[in-house]
Computed example of a mutant assay.
Amino acid sequence: MKSVTVIGSGIIGLTTANALQEQGFQVRIVAKERFDKTLSNKVGAVWFPYAIEPIKKSSFWAAQSFDRYKKEAGIAPGISFVPFLNAYVDESKEEWVDQLPPGTVRKAKPEELPKGMEKGLIAEVPLAKPPLYLPYLFEKFLSSGGTFEQKNLTNMEEIANLDSWVINCTGLGARALCEDEDLHPMRGQILRAEKLTVPSFADPTKKGALSYIINRSKDSVIGGTDYDDDWNESIDPNDTNLILSRLKAFGIESDPKILEVIVGLRPKRSAVRFEFDSDYPNVFHNYGHGGAGFTVAWGCALELSNILSQKAR
């Protein structure tokens, strides 16, 4: 049986490992931390192509992921489809719309828009609850013969020697491992609050002023921040106040009851690195997915598994 080692156990690593198993590979995951300690376990995880390049390619990956989540809805714990409003402006690039089935996306009516939002698109989109979905993927991986090893890797030579094929899904950790200065953090602070009664929406139209509400079954995730090159993982009370003030700008008058404040560093890059390494040809890189990890994870994983399957013939 063909052998592959996947590095990283966040959403990119877990979907990659599962997709490779579906192609008949024997897969091992090696990671510094288990999935429950990764950035993927912290996020709101709604299907939303945000802060990711290249746009056309990521839109295709997002559409593939959309289809996969549709198949998993009702089967995989933590996966559901919810109505979601996405703000846009005339110059916005909304290529993802063209990748989805006809009738999936429609323009919002004026009465459906929050205060201050001029235009929006509404669609039923996938929503993942990481504390349920990530364990499902991990257990599925183990039950299909996969193995997990917790280990801190430090350089590309060490990575290349792990296996005949190695997939690098280390997210922001790839900056040091690959000496990739194009990869940098985009700091996000979010609030987990008691469930709100207003519809879920996102407004990414103003750089540095990302705002969104993601309503889940028992709570709501309110965001957020999108600060480039900010390595601060500590909670900033000023950001909490800023997030709440933006809510009021959308016409939401009463402050929600905050249950938890969460900070994470998104792995942003000028473009997702999705390629074989030029110096270590047995290593394939799959990192730099910005704020769209859950949105494109399955699309990347399925394309990657097809590429490797053809190589291994």
Rank of each mutant, 00 (worst) to 15 (best):
M1C: 07
V6K: 13
V6I: 04
S9R: 06
V30A: 04
R34N: 14
K42A: 05
V43R: 07
A45K: 09
V46F: 01
F48R: 09
Y50G: 15
A51W: 13
S58R: 07
W61P: 13
Q64K: 14
Q64F: 00
F66Q: 12
D67E: 11
D67C: 09
D67V: 05
R68H: 07
Y69F: 07
K70G: 12
F84V: 08
L85I: 10
N86D: 05
Y88M: 10
E91D: 14
G103P: 04
G103C: 09
T104I: 05
P110T: 01
P126G: 11
K129A: 09
L134T: 06
E139R: 11
S143I: 10
Q150H: 09
L162V: 05
L162E: 08
D163S: 15
S164H: 04
V166G: 00
G171A: 04
G173V: 10
C178A: 11
S200E: 08
A209T: 05
N215P: 00
V221E: 08
D226V: 01
D230Q: 08
P237Q: 12
D239N: 11
E253N: 08
V261E: 15
R266H: 01
R273P: 03
S278F: 01
V283W: 02
V283F: 01
F284T: 06
N286H: 00
G288N: 04
A301N: 01
L302S: 06
I307R: 14
Q310G: 02
